[in-house]
Computed example of a mutant assay.
Amino acid sequence: MDIPRSLDQFQTIVENFIAETYPIILAGIAIALYSGFVFLFYRFLARKDILTLDLSKYENNYSRKFRSYFRIVFHIGLYIVLIPILIAFWTLILAMILTLFASDPDHARNALIATAVVGAIRILSYWTEELSRDVAKMLPFAVLGVFLVDSTSVHIDSIISLIESWPELADSWWNSLILLSILEVILRVLNGILNFIRGKKELKINLAEMSNKTGRSKEDILEDIQDDGKLNQSNTLNES
């Protein structure tokens, strides 16, 4: 680069520099924002328990029967209504991204792909959250990579087409909501059954260990624990 010898030359160099770096800065900001969205997206969806609330502090002043009903109603609303709505919302956002970046957008196909990916993420989250996080990052970053390599851009026509296709996207969103609601309920029920089976096995092992240590029968220990939640050691102390 030649050293400017006049104010006009210096001004020309500055203008050329701004013209060349301005798109780079905008692209960097856009990539950072998109990556931030992907970060929030995969951290949210990849967790097995998307929402966790401690209900114990709200139940102390109520009867045991009321607490049971309250827990049932709460879990129905949480796993059948609220969580599927949140998951379907992210599915809609993912479908919109696919629609905007695709060269020939097919709204139904993009909604199907987004629903399939989110469904796979939710299934894997009940097995291992590490793999579900990897899958949750895969498609959004793959779309970004293709977008950068192909040097494509989001045109105004794509945005207008997306706005005009809202009825179709709304239908796809409702279908995704119903499907993901059913999937989440099935996963939660299966997870509860597996936890119950594991809990029974662990209880048998713990009862056997306590029976060997205390010399009491398993039935006696279980009845003692169920009575007040603690193991009464009075019999053992008296015998010793």
Rank of each mutant, 00 (worst) to 15 (best):
V135T: 13
V135W: 05
A136P: 00
K137L: 15
K137H: 06
K137S: 10
M138Y: 14
M138A: 15
M138N: 05
M138K: 06
L139P: 00
L139V: 11
P140W: 02
P140H: 09
A142R: 02
A142K: 02
L144P: 05
G145L: 06
G145T: 11
V146K: 12
F147P: 08
F147D: 06
L148P: 11
V149C: 01
D150L: 12
D150A: 15
S151W: 13
T152C: 02
T152Y: 01
T152H: 07
T152P: 00
S153K: 12
S153E: 13
V154K: 08
V154I: 15
I156D: 02
I156T: 11
D157G: 09
D157P: 00
S158A: 14
S158L: 06
S158V: 03
S158D: 07
S158P: 00
I159R: 09
I160T: 07
S161I: 00
L162T: 07
L162E: 00
L162N: 06
E164K: 11
E164Y: 08
E164D: 08
E164I: 02
E164H: 09
S165K: 02
W166M: 15
W166F: 15
P167E: 13
P167K: 06
E168P: 00
L169W: 00
L169A: 07
A170W: 11
A170S: 12
A170R: 10
S172T: 01
S172N: 12
S172I: 00
W173Y: 15
W173C: 06
W173P: 04
W173E: 02
W174K: 14
W174I: 15
N175A: 09
S176Q: 03
I178T: 09
L179N: 11
S181I: 03
S181C: 08
L183W: 07
L183H: 07
L183A: 04
E184D: 05
